[in-house]
Design a protein around this nucleic acid. Structure first.
Lengths: 111, 111
DNA sequence: CTAATACTTAAGTGTTTACTTAAGCATTGT
DNA sequence: ACAATGCTTAAGTAAACACTTAAGTATTAG
């Protein structure tokens, strides 16, 4: 019953190709629900459900004006995900730097 | 029955907190299966299943020597995911640049 | 007023996911 | 040889997912 970490929701949301397609579309600019739905081979309610997942993950937000709901990207969640990946790669690369430094030092003490 | 896109597998794999913990551990350096399992409150077979998901996604690879399987990060899949996010943010930011340029131009023609 | 548009809600279904326990199989230490 | 270690396989289950269809509800255009 406890809330999942924000990164769980963001990465999980991005793990579905339809939802990624929706985010790709929204990266070009805001769009209505039916605009998002058009290229996807599924019913409108299905798209709504994907949209709900995207909103809960914080990747997308939307507001309804009249009878049309306009969706747009919320860059914060994307930045958070980007950050996590960035950090892992940094740590991984740091390992080689340290190994490299160690080997260089070994070389020097041998001369 | 067709193969899911590599990004599907990578993002989906990262959507689980246990698997993210495993990747976080592996970013510090290679580890055996039981080392990965130690901090996780679940059975060994469960960890194996998570490991299989990580391997299928390309985020991690492993090799068995004697009775110990050593796992390590494969940076390629991480880079691919990083790239996708990067690109979306770039596109999103480009929108504001264009809007900005447009408004600046409007300002100039008004003077 | 009426019909079309743009979503929205509800409920049902088959599949996938994240585990579990029990049992099995090679290595390695004694 | 034998036991302990480290992983592996198999099989089962409860919950989450990704849809579907059918039936709404507001807005807006004619």
């Amino acid at each position: 019953m406890d809330a999942p970490a924000p990164l769980d929701l963001a990465f999980q949301a991005l793990g579905d190709p339809s939802r990624r397609a929706m985010v790709e579309r929204l990266a070009l600019g805001p769009a209505s629900v039916s605009e998002l739905a058009k290229p996807l081979a599924m019913s409108l309610p299905a798209v709504m459900q994907h949209l709900a997942v995207l909103e809960q993950s914080g990747l997308v937000r939307s507001e309804k004006i009249g009878r049309v709901r306009t969706c747009r990207i919320d860059p914060n969640a994307i930045t958070a995900a980007e950050h996590w990946l960035n950090e892992r790669r940094r740590q991984w690369e740091q390992r080689f730097d340290r190994l490299d430094a160690f080997l260089t030092q070994q070389d020097e003490t041998q001369e």
